[in-house]
Nucleic acid binder design. Sequence first.
DNA 1: ATGGCGGCCTGCGGCCGA
Length: 262
Amino acid sequence: MRIATWNVNSIRSRVDRALGVLERHDLDVLALQETKCKDVQFPLDRFTEAGYEVAFHGLDQWNGVAIVSRVGIEDVQIGFDGMPHWGEPDPVAEARAIGATCGGVRIWSLYIPNGRALDNPHYAYKLDWLASLRDTAAGWLADDPQAQICLMGDWNVAPRDEDVWDPGFFEGKTHVSGPERAAFQAMIDAGYDDVVRPHTEGQYTYWDYTQLRFPKKQGMRIDFALASPALATRVTAAAIDREERKGKGASDHAPVLVVIED
DNA sequence: ATGGCGGCCTGCGGCCGA
């Protein structure tokens, strides 16, 4: 099975590119983040015409997640148990997580909060969100150590200095702070392996639109696929589709691909 | 080559992103 995750940065603006990614990589499943539309606005027909089913969740122009599959899409869940809320005066569950079982694998499309700045309330929200996800995901493995689970998406954390083009540039900024890196490591410690890094050493998944970051090769590795132990042993290959970042109308993120033996 | 932000809104500037 061939699966991938991609922060598409508006599905309405990039549905053609999304269909191109599906075809180019012969994907069975594609997890999308930042679809940036309400459910009624989601371009569902374009995917069904191509032979895919889609589970999607969007509340407004912010966030939004989806799972595209041609190997079935069952037991769809919006959000996860204990997922923190955000907003004033009445905090709500944002559209940042959707899960579904596709081809026997429990797929989660995740869009971790940005954090904005170390002294911003959004940063505490981000850490809380990651800690809650860890607790819930650890529970899934406690219930079934053989579970086939893939937690994939835009984690908004660069776990290592080598995951940013200039560590000095990021001093005092989000994505590289100790607590964020500890929160990401806690996912690993809970039993979920980063199955992409071993196949993609030295590569980035994101390049800012500004300052010619892409042609200057000044990017970040912030998109990950974390696999449960039983699934990790089935991973035979992984890749980052840097070509997708090229040209007019690209997302600022590249798709991250994982190949799982049947 | 890969190229100088781009997406959203009942918009025309302000927000969010990382």
